[in-house]
Design a protein around this nucleic acid. Structure first.
Lengths: 220, 220
DNA sequence: TTGCAATTCAAACAGTTGTATGAAACTATC
DNA sequence: GATAGTTTCATACAACTGTTTGAATTGCAA
């Protein structure tokens, strides 16, 4: 094995560009220019552009999931095998929100890259992405333990809504700022996390009786 | 003006393909093949590929917004200028969810196209998309009238979360079905709408006292 | 029918993409 | 210091992109 310098330079440059501009707009020539390496280096080190994307995604996916599971595990151990639902949700949405929001200069390129990856549907990633279901299932399990009276359906919907609020807020953060004329402060990450967790908790705990949500306005 | 047949055939084919495969993967040659017209027809009738996308987006955007505002207006008139918050949220997320979920054969191509458009960031659309802020502001206004005690910040966050749940559920519907092993029934559109409206309503009405969401777990 | 504009068409264009090639430059081993 | 293996580099390639061109065809009015 040699210096590895070129490899890592390519990975870093690619992640940065993808995070900023999306997959469709970034060409191999953009990447090698940013990394100050030769055009052929990508194919030499990674085989193809798709394999480069895949490697990037797999690496980051593992890292993000590990961070979330670390928080989840800590919460469950602290509660003797059963963590409060707020802490579970916190472990679910916290890492991603922290990486993507907050003051611009301290946002994680990796997290923004992952959001891009979860939004756009480039073939090599779509294939890998199904593995994440197993990861989410672990959270569903923890939520079931935290709310044993809740039906599975409600658990999954709550999980879905929690991820929905986190991801959408990241994705549309610019528009939300403009819409609210700056009143919604997306730099205060912990406030955003708390809001998402709070609403998701309500979704999961409110109105124990109803299997379906109230539908008095569902006439139409 | 002539038959217009070619124009409309192109629009229909483009919308269908974009809805299915996204903007990045659909080429002009795909479109003209699907529409059974000559390659040069797109440039002749629309000027460029971007103008075709823009026309499609503008047309559909107007239609969707009109439908949402129609429901909103009806709700407000029925309530004498102040609609219940559930109905406002229903008007906000109902039309989109109905167009994108439900039995496969009756999903609206137009609605799926709009979701694609809101996800991917193709230049001609990004430019137009900022107009939608004015549209959302009308809903924010109605929500303020429905909840006069609520702060603007909370209103905007509630609006954001409602859209978040609707869009994310559409986007990740396949994964939610797989994750829940079919327990979450995405064909029952009115149930989905009711769930989203219910959670969004809770987010907007719960815990009047707190300005910020509870943050007892926000340690870290 | 004649004439004229609108529309269609096949073909070619210039630009960009990801990938492949083979020579050059390096690195380490003997 | 010669040799073998790895890595870099300039360059070329084939495929594909959106767009343009100019001739053919159509539709319709006079």
């Amino acid at each position: 094995m040699a210096s590895d310098h070129t490899r890592t330079a390519i990975l870093a440059a690619a992640e940065r560009l993808y995070a900023d501009r999306g997959f469709g707009d970034v060409t191999l020539r953009d990447i090698v220019a940013e990394a100050n390496v030769n055009l052929a280096a990508v194919n030499y080190h990674f085989g193809s552009k798709d394999e480069l994307i895949a490697e990037l995604f797999v690496t980051r996916s593992i890292a993000t999931n590990r961070e979330r599971l670390r928080e989840l595990k800590a919460a469950e151990e602290q509660g003797g095998g059963r963590a409060p639902i707020e802490m579970i949700l916190h472990a679910l949405v916290g890492p991603t929100l922290r990486g993507c929001l907050g003051p611009e200069n301290q946002r994680s390129t990796a997290a923004r890259f992952m959001i891009r990856a979860s939004i756009e549907s480039v073939p090599p990633i779509r294939r890998i992405k199904n593995r994440e279901i197993d990861h989410l299932r672990k959270f569903a399990g923890a939520m079931r333990r935290a709310l044993p009276d809740r039906s599975d359906v409600d658990i999954y919907w709550g999980l879905n809504f929690a991820l929905a609020m986190a991801h959408h807020t990241i994705r549309e953060s610019e528009r939300l700022t403009k819409l609210s004329e700056g009143k919604c402060d997306l730099d205060d990450v912990e406030d955003v996390v708390a809001r998402v967790v709070s609403v998701a908790t309500m979704a999961l705990t409110a109105g124990k009786a109803e299997t379906k949500a109230p539908s008095k306005v569902a006439a139409r």
